[in-house]
């Protein structure tokens, strides 16, 4: 029956290919957290604990059992949707992630949208006018973007816009305390506030968001602008552009209808890559802006060998990447008819 819908079949197949990846991630994240230096039992038993109470804690945490048995228990709980309890926050890991993941995603996505909105037009302009001031501007922005570390740009932005100019709110979290958190619908404050029609909160959240998102955008903008410029230059020198021009098509049509769509494929690839390393770069930005995201959560958990939290984090990230790759693959086929999903 599925053979009648090759696209659907291909998508399902592509999803199925992700299953072994997820299984691998479950095993590796489990083993890696066990391999971490430090004994969580010692940490959680407290500074004053003696041998006996440490042992007690160890038994309570299930760490006295053999590794295989621990793994079986872990997988069993995982299948029931239970990611375990975080020992640092004292809440279920699933709840923690549900609270914090949207914060990170909102930050990263806003940054990426901002970066694309600047980088892609900049790259196109630079490619169509090589050697002019736009081209040079593109080069300067790209160089600055890659050479300035995020924590540095973040601090500079805070210094300028918060301390000197005073137009930005204090860089503390997602929302100033004078606003009430919007109802939890998607977890994205901007979307939730818009859905409930609470525009005051929306503005507040946007104000809080703009500096960290800008910091991250500056960092992700560079590879995007570079790739757009390079692939646009490649597309514009293709034979089919000459055909289009010889047929009398307008510059606009040639540029956007013909060249840009052909140049888009490498840009989408870069976008996917940038997205993944932006999630990594998040940790620093979240620290600087006290952003309650998943990155800072993971670092805190890692420091104290909070197994359940670290495993939950790694698993969530892995799933996120699997979804991201799937989306990018699907985008490819939408852009380029030559890429058929082959069954093999």
């Amino acid at each position: 029956m599925l053979s009648a819908y090759p696209r659907l079949r291909a998508v399902l197949l592509r999803c199925a290919q992700a299953i072994p990846v997820v299984i691998g991630v479950v095993v590796i994240s489990f083993l890696l957290t066990r391999a971490l230096p430090g004994d969580p039992a010692v940490y959680f038993a407290g500074v004053m604990a003696d041998e006996a109470s440490i042992e007690e804690t160890r038994i309570a945490m299930g760490l006295d059992k053999p590794m295989t048995q621990q793994f079986v228990i872990y997988v069993g709980e995982l299948l029931r949707g239970d990611l375990g309890m975080s020992l640092t926050s004292g809440r279920p890991v699933a709840t923690d992630l549900a609270n914090r993941l949207p914060a990170s995603l909102e930050l990263t996505l806003t940054a990426l949208i901002l970066a694309s909105a600047i980088a892609i037009p900049l790259g196109i302009l630079a490619a169509t006018r090589p050697g002019t001031w736009v081209d040079h501007l593109c080069r300067v922005v790209v160089t600055a973007g890659v050479s300035l570390p995020t924590f540095f740009t973040g601090i500079v932005l805070i210094f300028v816009f918060y301390y000197l100019l005073g137009i930005a709110p204090s860089p503390l979290g997602r929302l100033d305390f004078i606003y009430i958190e919007p109802d939890h619908i998607t977890g994205f404050y901007l979307i939730d506030a818009a859905l409930t029609g609470d525009w005051e909160t929306w503005r507040g959240a946007a104000k809080q968001l703009i500096l960290p998102a800008g910091t991250l955008a500056l960092f992700t903008l560079a590879p995007l602008a570079r790739m757009t410029r390079a692939s646009m230059l490649g597309a514009l020198s293709s034979d089919f552009i000459r055909t289009a021009r010889a047929a009398g098509l307008t510059n606009r049509k040639v540029l956007y209808g013909y060249a840009f769509r052909n140049a888009l494929l490498p840009v989408v690839t870069t976008l996917g890559m940038v997205f993944s390393f932006a999630l990594g770069a998040n940790v620093l930005v979240e620290k600087v802006f006290a952003w309650p995201g998943i990155g800072s959560y993971a670092v805190e958990a890692l420091v104290v060998s909070d197994y359940a939290a670290v495993q939950g984090f790694v698993l969530a990230m892995a799933l996120l990447f699997v979804v991201l790759n799937l989306v990018i693959d699907l985008l490819y086929t939408a852009i380029d008819p030559r890429i058929g999903f082959e069954a093999s």
Binding site: S238, D239, F240, R245, I335
Partner: peptide
């Protein structure tokens, strides 16, 4: 271009927009 004078090119496969 295209209405009064038009052109055909070598390497026809590359001369067409591939996508």
């Amino acid at each position: 271009r295209g209405r009064e004078i038009s052109m055909i090119f070598q390497n026809p496969r590359a001369a067409l927009n591939p996508i």
